[in-house]
Design a binder for these strands. Structure first.
Length: 525
RNA sequence: GGGUCUGUAGCUUAGUUCGGCAUAGCGGCGGACUCUUAAUCCGCAGGUCAAGGGUUCGAAUCCCUUCAGGCCCGCCA
């Protein structure tokens, strides 16, 4: 265990859980309570933020300002000089230096500060602004009010918290001390705001569809399973909102989207977290090509609003989002990046080519179309660094996409790849209920043969299509990976506030059955 | 699932190759200090070296097992 029990931590409730309470701080708390000091007063009348002080008094000189200020924040550093103290106060907007003199505060208040106020505490201050000899904008403090006592001590002031595991497990500490981390999550929030604005501007309606679903669908993945006691029924956490959003299109909403948290019971690595966020968009009377255009506009707008330019640097590579983004059929992509003209070869020749290229499991693909996907995944995907739309996917791999209007055996589907990562997936939505039924049945056969990711048959969804869905285009865009790109992070854990981690107190809990019951072919209703 | 690396004080860490008193800085505690900004100076306290087992006169160090995490690969159409 990373967290051993140390002298200055005290233990409560669960033996495997440690509190990082600092004994000397607890002693101060006791002393303060005896003095009748309110350690957690209800409010403080903050008149101005730190950033606003910096802006407003940008021209301030060594002379104290006439005007007084009242602001508040957390104490990050205290530099004690005897009868004067310098300290750094920080709020969300920034940091500012405090100048605290015994002569100004009076003996009692000054000694109180010295004795009881510590790094990490929240305080409110009033005072006047001036600039020190060394040019630092500073609040010359008149009064100090304790607003919230911290009984856990902050990490070291210079290095901060660098241990990645602790940064993820105790994100609040990471956010307190690591400005880059705060900045990254601020970007994430702004990105999501931009996405909403982009879609709102185009009059898409945002909806919330069920996360607890009796039948999961919309993607190929293994689900989390749960149980509703009163219904006496197994439920799944959604792996995608797709089938519900399209029910809305059936219902008559022509432009819909959802910023959806999805849950997939799969491995955790630098690009996968069990819960992750996608935006899914459906647009009636539009097709796959329109959705590529929309995705392109979407990215371009996002780049403009978040980044200011159409280029970003990601791990030494400059990625350009300048329109138009490259578009290639899967067939051409395999030709160009793998040097293989799939339909000029027989299946046997393709198998020989796979062996020749040292690829694994060359026996698995049984047809030219399967080899197309096989070569694409093994030899092309990772090479798609600049944003590239790949389109025209074999029908076998796309059970929810409409059949291609001219190419037999293909669907009107695209995926967008950036830096080798799949960033978006869209298609002309399959709206033929009979075809959909057949595709589901094909998936179900795979599932019964042990394919844990194959889709379930959702008869109600087929029924919905039976009432008629207009021709519709749809796209799903992975928000976490997008944030990774835009914030220059190469791990999804850096862009998810509280990434999934193994519990620290695994003791009592049943270590959980290895296989989720969801892997069973059909849910009991 | 496979490989690989990591875990030492609240935080950041030295020491691990080649076994011999567990380092230091910050933070904390006590003291000095009225323009510092990673303040400075003096003193003090603080450790189950992730956990367990083994080898050894002697283990942070070598061996085994376990736990947690990072990275890479596989899986994730």
């Amino acid at each position: 265990m990373r967290y051993s029990l140390k002298e200055r931590s005290i233990l409560v409730t669960d033996p495997s859980e440690t509190l990082a309470f600092d004994q000397t701080r607890l002693d101060k708390v006791r002393a303060l309570r005896e003095k009748g000091v309110d350690l957690y007063p209800p409010t403080f009348d903050r008149k101005i933020t730190i950033a606003d002080i910096r802006t407003k008094f940008a021209e301030i000189t060594h002379e104290k300002s006439e005007e007084s200020v009242a602001t508040a924040g957390r104490l990050y550093i205290i530099r004690n000089h005897g009868k004067t103290i310098f300290a750094d106060l920080g709020d969300e907007s920034g940091k500012i230096q405090l100048y605290i003199r015994k002569a100004d505060l009076g003996d009692e208040a000054f000694d109180f500060f010295n004795q009881y106020i510590e790094r990490g505490d929240f305080i409110g201050v009033t005072g006047h602004v001036f600039r020190t000899k060394l040019g630092e904008i500073t609040i010359w403090v008149d009064t100090i009010t304790l607003l919230s006592k911290a009984i856990c001590s902050l990490p070291e002031k210079f290095h901060g918290l660098t241990d990645v595991e602790k940064r993820y497990r105790q994100r609040y500490v990471d956010l307190i001390v690591n400005e880059e981390s705060r900045q990254g999550f601020r970007s994430r929030s702004r990105i999501i705001t931009s996405i909403r604005r982009f879609l709102n501007d185009r009059e898409f309606l945002e909806f919330e569809t069920p996360i607890l679903q009796p039948i999961y669908g919309g993607a190929n993945a293994r689900p989390f399973t749960t149980f509703h006691n009163c219904l006496g029924q197994k439920l799944f956490l959604r792996i995608a909102p797709e089938l519900y959003l399209k029910r809305l299109v059936v219902g008559g909403f022509e432009k819909v989207f959802e910023i959806a948290r999805n849950f997939r019971n799969e491995d955790i690595d630098t690009h996968h977290n069990p819960e992750f966020t996608m935006v899914e968009i459906y647009w009636a009377y539009h097709d796959v090509y329109d959705m590529m255009d929309l995705t392109e506009d979407f990215l371009s707008t996002l780049m403009h609003e978040i980044n200011g330019t159409q280029e970003i640097k990601f791990e030494e590579t400059t990625i350009s989002f300048k329109k138009p983004l490259r578009r290639l059929t899967m067939e051409d992509a395999v030709k160009e990046y793998a040097g293989i003209d799939i339909f000029a070869h027989s299946v046997d020749e393709l198998r020989a080519l796979a062996v020749q290229n040292h690829l694994k499991e060359p026996d698995k693909p049984k047809s030219q179309r399967e080899f197309l996907v096989y070569f694409f995944e093994n030899m092309v995907e990772e090479k798609l660094i600049q944003p590239t739309f790949i389109y025209d996917y074999p029908v076998e791999n796309s059970p929810l996409a409409k059949r291609h209007r001219t190419k037999e055996g293909f669907t009107e589907r695209f995926e967008l790849f950036i830096y080798g990562m799949e960033m978006a997936n869209g298609f002309s939505e399959l709206n033929d209920p009979l075809d959909q039924k057949e595709r589901f049945e094909a998936q179900d056969r795979k599932r019964l043969l042990g394919d844990l990711e194959a889709q379930m048959i959702d008869y109600d969804y087929i029924n919905a299509l039976g009432y008629g869905m207009p021709p519709t285009g749809g796209v799903g865009i992975g928000i976490d990976r997008l944030v990774m790109l835009l914030t220059g992070n190469n791990s999804i854990k850096e862009v998810i506030l509280f990434p999934s981690m193994k519990s620290m107190q695994a003791e009592g809990e049943e270590a959980a059955g290895k296989e989720s019951p969801a892997a069973e072919p059909t849910p009991k209703n």
